[in-house]
Computed example of a mutant assay.
Amino acid sequence: MRTAGIIPARYGSTRLPGKPLLEIQGRPMVWWVCERARRARRLDQVWVATDDRRIEEVCRDLQIPVVMTGREHRTAAERLQEASEQVRADFYVQINGDEPLIDPANIDAAVPDEVPLDVEFGTNIIARVKDPAQLCHSSNIKVVFDGSFRALYMSRTPVPYPFCDVSFSYYKHVGIIGYNRKMLDFYKSSAPGRLELIEGIDTLRFLDYGKELRLIPVERADSLSVDTEADLRWVRERMSEKRL
């Protein structure tokens, strides 16, 4: 089985325009994400998928494999699907392009030992919620799963509701998602489902249509998505201290 890590890198961020090219320790952010992804042992190749020639040029200068995709994509999964038409693999792992501290072990966790190729199949990294304040924050997607860690539901609100029992842990979605080709092609050809439209969570499309999404818990998921100038300063300081 051949695996590929795909890093969607969009230039037009509302809060931080040109985010993939912002400098950290003398290198653009996208370079750091690529370097972390390349440490993942279960990826055979790592590519950047971008909509902007400026990002493409920087990637080529830094010898980072890169593919151009359209600007019309609403979600990272749509960009990933287009990239999969240029990068041949059996399984694709979506890696956020704004997490320069992403853990390579968590990327590896998204690649199961066996991947069915004849039916739609995906994986999603999850982590236990340790800070109660995260439960009420709508940006933290809470997940519900069965005994085999197959996804049952995802929500921006705390689920399940502790009506009869409080002796359980909440889990949240972590932005590392794996897809086989059939799952990506299904995403391209399908319309948003009812629950996806209600919650505003595009991953719910797979559950709306009864596709298998296997959730994989990891112990540590403390990477930070760089969305603001304050996030960028924090990451720069931390990487400077660690001399990464």
Rank of each mutant, 00 (worst) to 15 (best):
R2Y: 04
A4W: 01
A4H: 04
I7S: 02
P8V: 07
P8I: 07
Y11E: 05
Y11N: 08
L16R: 12
L16Q: 06
L16Y: 09
G18S: 10
G18Y: 09
K19D: 00
L21K: 12
G26L: 03
R27V: 03
R27F: 03
V30E: 03
V30G: 06
W31Y: 14
W31H: 10
E35W: 09
E35H: 13
R36E: 02
A40L: 06
R41A: 13
D44W: 13
T50N: 07
R53Y: 08
R54H: 06
E56D: 08
E57Q: 14
E57F: 05
C59Y: 05
R60W: 00
D61S: 15
I64L: 11
P65E: 05
P65D: 06
V67H: 01
M68R: 15
H73C: 02
T75E: 00
A77N: 01
R79Q: 13
L80D: 02
E82G: 04
V87P: 03
R88A: 03
R88K: 13
Y92V: 01
I95V: 14
I95Q: 04
I95G: 04
G97V: 02
L101P: 00
P104Q: 05
I107C: 06
D108N: 14
A110W: 03
P112L: 08
E114H: 14
E114D: 10
P116I: 06
P116M: 07
P116H: 08
L117Q: 15
V119W: 00
V119D: 00
N124T: 11
I126S: 02
A127W: 05
A127V: 15
R128S: 07
V129L: 07
K130M: 05
A133P: 01
A133K: 14
A133V: 12
H137K: 14
S138D: 09
S139F: 12
N140A: 11
N140T: 09
N140K: 12
V144E: 12
V144Y: 11
G147M: 09
S148M: 08
A151G: 13
Y153P: 01
M154W: 09
T157R: 15
V159K: 13
Y161G: 00
Y161N: 11
V166R: 14
Y171S: 06
V174T: 06
G175P: 15
R181T: 07
M183T: 03
D185C: 01
K188N: 02
K188D: 00
S190P: 03
S190C: 11
G193P: 13
L195F: 10
T203N: 09
L204D: 03
E212D: 12
R214S: 07
I216E: 01
V218C: 11
V218D: 07
R220I: 13
R220K: 14
S223L: 03
L224M: 14
E229R: 15
A230K: 15
A230T: 10
L232V: 10
W234F: 12
W234N: 04
R236N: 13
E237W: 03
R238D: 07
R238C: 02
S240R: 15
E241W: 11
K242M: 11
R243L: 05
R243C: 01
